[in-house]
Simulated assay, not measured.
Amino acid sequence: MDENNKKIGRNKKDSNDDMINLVDNLNRQDDVKYNRRSFLKATVGASVTLGLATLPFSIKAMMDDGAKDVNRVEIAKLSDVPKGESFKFGYPTEDDMALLVHTKNGQLKAYNSKCTHLSCPVFYESTKDVLLCPCHKGYFNVSTGHPMAGPPQRELPLIELEVIDDVIYAVGRKIRHG
Rank of each mutant, 00 (worst) to 15 (best):
A42L: 11
D2E: 11
L40N: 11
K104M: 09
L118T: 09
N4R: 10
N21M: 03
A76T: 11
S58W: 05
L131N: 08
V70P: 00
G90N: 05
N11M: 09
L78N: 02
K174Y: 07
K83H: 02
V163I: 13
F39I: 12
V163H: 09
P56W: 03
L131I: 10
N16D: 13
V70L: 12
G178C: 08
H146E: 15
Y91S: 06
Y169I: 09
K77S: 12
R10C: 01
T54D: 08
D129P: 03
D2Q: 07
G178I: 13
G150C: 08
D165L: 07
H117S: 05
T43Y: 08
V101R: 06
L99N: 04
R28G: 03
D24K: 10
A53Y: 04
V142G: 05
Q153P: 01
L99M: 07
G9D: 13
M19R: 13
C133S: 04
V70Q: 09
L22V: 12
G106Y: 06
Y169N: 10
G178V: 13
L118N: 08
I164L: 13
D18G: 03
L50C: 11
L108F: 15
K60Y: 05
N27L: 07
Y124M: 06
A98R: 04
P56N: 07
P56R: 04
M97Y: 00
Y34A: 06
R154G: 02
F39Y: 13
Q107D: 15
M97R: 11
R176K: 14
N35M: 06
V122P: 10
D65E: 11
S86I: 04
F140Y: 15
I168R: 07
V73N: 01
D95C: 00
T43I: 12
N71Y: 01
V48E: 01
H136A: 05
N105C: 02
S143P: 00
I159E: 05
N105L: 06
K128Y: 05
R176T: 14
N11T: 03
V44G: 08
D69H: 05
L99Y: 06
S47K: 02
N35T: 02
N4Y: 07
N25W: 05
K6E: 11
G51Q: 02
M19L: 14
L78C: 01
Y124G: 09
S119T: 11
C120D: 11
G66K: 03
I75P: 01
V171T: 15
D24Q: 13
D129R: 04
S38W: 00
S126H: 10
T127W: 01
G145N: 10
D31P: 00
L22I: 12
I20G: 00
T93E: 06
N35G: 12
Y169M: 07
H177C: 08
D129V: 06
M1A: 12
S113P: 02
E155Q: 15
R173C: 13
D2N: 15
F57L: 14
G150R: 05
E155H: 04
K33G: 01
G66T: 06
D24A: 11
S113Y: 02
L131R: 08
P121G: 12
G106F: 10
E125K: 14
R37E: 10
E85Q: 14
G9Q: 10
